[in-house]
């Protein structure tokens, strides 16, 4: 059954193929420098935050929606987390988590119960949450808690300290990947595919549509907040604009990874590949000395190409 759940191996192999081609291209171009472990490692590390945000986006896109609030939640939860630093450590995480659960829950309820389009709900939430981040943080980046508490050393060491030679940040990202994969193996997670595939069928098959969708939105928000805390660890401050690029990048990664915006299709493995493909691509463009200016254009073309190929496949 899990084979049916996750993939089409063929699609995944195709993505891996694309990634390998990109990597070999990069290797030739850089005369092997690209393949140095440190370089590959760096590419991975640079994209961990996107990876986690994209996993949340994946949940929503599979359910047939779209999440335009990912970026705002990343920024907001970073700011909130830093401001909470005066309290004892477990409390900071718990409060940050609670707030984010409420945000995701509101989106979920509006989409599921009031039946508003996911695009509009998450767009509105993105404005609201971004605004909240500015309100609580005074509009700028924050470096300490409200009464001056230092940012927790644990968080600041996420990218620096290692466990078995791996930075904590990487371990967290891997745990998120495993976590979301496992979630898709539970009934609630599995049903995300069901409601995204055909909500009416899901309803009459007895799938608890309301609960499934609200959980997906809450989970996506939690993943975004993890990404937000990782951002704090990486740069040492909370910035409301931390996630500005993440919303569209995450949508891009998920769609390049084979998910369909009409819902019901998409995989964790594909999304991971999508993130890595975008990451390697950026790296290649840098190596080619393509000015960083034109890079958004190349990214745009790649997204179009990937989705075009997917849409052709579905037609036949």
């Amino acid at each position: 059954m899990n084979k049916n759940l996750s993939v089409n191996m063929k699609d995944l192999l195709k993505l891996i193929g694309v990634l390998l081609i990109l990597i070999s291209f990069a290797a030739i171009l850089s005369k092997g420098v690209f393949l140095r472990p440190i370089n590959l490692f760096n590419i991975t590390i640079q994209n961990l935050i996107l990876m986690i945000a994209a996993l949340g986006q994946l949940l929503i896109i599979i359910s047939g929606g779209i999440d335009l609030s990912v970026g705002s939640i990343v920024g907001f939860s970073g700011v909130l987390f830093v401001l909470l630093q005066d309290m004892t450590e477990p409390l900071t995480y718990i409060i940050a988590l609670m707030v984010v659960i409420i945000i995701g829950g509101i989106s979920g309820v509006l989409v599921t119960c009031v039946k508003l389009p996911s695009f509009v709900v998450t767009m509105a939430m993105s404005y609201i949450v971004f605004s909240l981040a500015k309100i609580i943080g005074g509009g700028a980046s924050v470096y300490t808690g409200i009464s001056g508490g230092e940012i927790s050393a644990t968080v600041l060491s996420l990218y620096k300290s290692h466990f078995l030679g791996l930075p904590y940040a990487l371990i967290i990202a891997v745990l998120c990947i495993i976590g979301v994969s496992l979630y898709f193996r539970t009934s609630m997670g599995h049903f995300i595919y069901t409601i995204g595939g055909n909500e009416k069928t899901a309803l009459l098959s007895g799938v608890p549509v309301v609960r499934v969708r609200i959980s997906a939105y809450i989970l996506a928000a939690i993943l975004a907040s993890i990404a937000g805390i990782m951002f704090v660890g990486r740069v040492g401050l909370g910035d409301p604009q931390a996630g500005d690029l993440l919303t569209l990048d995450s949508i891009a990664a998920v769609t390049v990874g084979g998910a369909s915006l009409s819902g019901g299709v998409g995989t964790v493995a594909g999304t991971v590949m999508g993130v890595l493909i975008l990451g390697v691509l950026n790296n290649i463009l840098n190596m080619l000395n393509v000015s960083p200016s034109i890079q958004p254009a190349v990214k745009g073309i790649i997204i179009l190409l990937a989705v075009y190929l997917n849409s052709r496949k579905n037609r036949s």
Partner: peptide
Amino acid sequence: IITLGMLGIGRGLAKF
């Protein structure tokens, strides 16, 4: 998706 791609293309061209 189409206009998302075009968003990137437009921005890239402008910067370029």
